Amino acid sequence: MPSETPQAEVGPTGCPHRSGPHSAKGSLEKGSPEDKEAKEPLWIRPDAPSRCTWQLGRPASESPHHHTAPAKSPKILPDILKKIGDTPMVRINKIGKKFGLKCELLAKCEFFNAGGSVKDRISLRMIEDAERDGTLKPGDTIIEPTSGNTGIGLALAAAVRGYRCIIVMPEKMSSEKVDVLRALGAEIVRTPTNARFDSPESHVGVAWRLKNEIPNSHILDQYRNASNPLAHYDTTADEILQQCDGKLDMLVASVGTGGTITGIARKLKEKCPGCRIIGVDPEGSILAEPEELNQTEQTTYEVEGIGYDFIPTVLDRTVVDKWFKSNDEEAFTFARMLIAQEGLLCGGSAGSTVAVAVKAAQELQEGQRCVVILPDSVRNYMTKFLSDRWMLQKGFLKEEDLTEKKPWWWHLRVQELGLSAPLTVLPTITCGHTIEILREKGFDQAPVVDEAGVILGMVTLGNMLSSLLAGKVQPSDQVGKVIYKQFKQIRLTDTLGRLSHILEMDHFALVV
């Protein structure tokens, strides 16, 4: 994948999101292997301009796509893939009243899908469409860049269908997702969380590099694949309309690839034109409109599966009536509230959605109805927002919020430890010299600072030695090549209790 991002070429006709291997024109390309080798690009942008032909009021008969309808489940399912879809609609009884809503608040519980998330729908649909058009064949390999849930859905379907599955996901995604993927037989590649989507090191860039190296491999490409919004247009939206008897006044959905909100909203605009569509985008993402909503100094966020630093091709923002931004604290607070007060075992993005819903639905009156999409299960986040310690460490809970008995030293300040200034190293000294210094002084790690004293990161003896043994660096290389740029900081005025929580999850903390 090139470091400079080429513009994806656009073909003359058809839909841009065809499933299957992508040609340089962004659509299915038939021909000899030699032709494909000559024409197939190194990668295709996940934010390529959409060429979708959908228009409100256009006859369904003019759609270029294969459409399906929700099917009634048999008493005995032939395999677990038949437990994807037909998820329950559940009334939220307490939270709406707590925040003064007059309307009825309903939750579409997508964590009841077989793999635990709304992404099971698009995973199965992308595979079925690729099999139907002859792209996927027995023994082929599926590769997908994902925040985890699409990966789980694909790995689940691949396990049943017999495909090899490789999932490329950023490091910030939970260990629970990784464990589930491994249990399903998927191979996992992790990428830096802070890598831009168009960087060769991003999950998108690495996935395309693997595709170019592995024979008979395919990126189904949830960011561009029409099967993504079509899955929701054909099934999720129809289920909502049936469950609500066609009567709903507002739908609120958090947005990642945009397939969920695009597919549902398009069908609702056709069948229930008075329904307002509300999009939820986390602070630090750029999906919301108008652009002024996205202006923030924050560039990272903890909530998973929603928000991006690019506009995915499948996201149709014209069908969203209003956007709201959400933050991590309210997302996790509301997710825990949904679990504790409503018994809905949902993930953090569901918290984002409901946090926005109780604001947006203030305009609705008694007798009206708001539906929220709860995308995934708490299963993926047992060591994250479900953990009091994690919430404390991230600053989303305060010590006084917890009532468990603490040891005698818990409320003492870090400054009472009488710490001395640490050994520091410059980023320009060599790895070999740094190892000598650390061994001589008896230290395992040291902060790396520039000549102005600005902290650049941390270097550890173990990481340097393993990097040297693996051949990633040489003793003569500058130590700046092996620094940890993500590390926890703590102030002298913070409590030892807070430091204790940090050290339970990290090997060190830097006192500043």
Rank of each mutant, 00 (worst) to 15 (best):
Y223I: 02
C103V: 06
Q7R: 07
H17P: 13
A231S: 06
P33E: 11
G246Q: 06
K98C: 05
T141Y: 07
K39C: 06
A24G: 12
S217L: 02
P200E: 07
A226N: 10
K267C: 12
D140V: 08
E201Y: 04
E187Y: 03
G258Y: 00
L42C: 09
A107Q: 06
G246I: 05
S117R: 04
P64Y: 03
K267F: 11
L154S: 00
A237S: 08
P229V: 06
P74G: 13
I143R: 01
T260Q: 01
D129W: 14
S123M: 01
L154T: 01
W43N: 07
G162Y: 10
S174C: 02
D133R: 10
T150G: 00
R164D: 02
P33R: 11
T191F: 01
C244L: 05
K172L: 01
R266H: 10
C52D: 02
P46N: 02
L248Q: 08
D221T: 05
D198N: 15
K119C: 03
P138M: 04
L154Y: 02
D47A: 08
G14T: 10
T150C: 01
I264Y: 04
E144H: 03
N149G: 00
A155H: 04
K137S: 03
L210P: 00
I261S: 01
P49W: 13
N216S: 15
I76D: 07
P192F: 06
G259R: 00
P33Y: 04
A226M: 10
S174H: 01
S123K: 06
V160S: 13
Y233D: 00
L28Q: 10
P41N: 09
I84L: 14
D179C: 14
V178Y: 06
A183Y: 04
R18W: 14
G256N: 02
G162A: 04
E62A: 14
I261F: 05
A38P: 10
K119S: 01
R121L: 00
N93P: 08
N225M: 05
L101F: 04
I122C: 01
F111K: 04
Y233T: 00
L268Q: 01
V168N: 04
S32H: 10
R125P: 07
E201W: 11
C109L: 04
P59I: 13
R190D: 01
T260P: 01
S61G: 02
E110T: 00
A265R: 06
S73D: 10
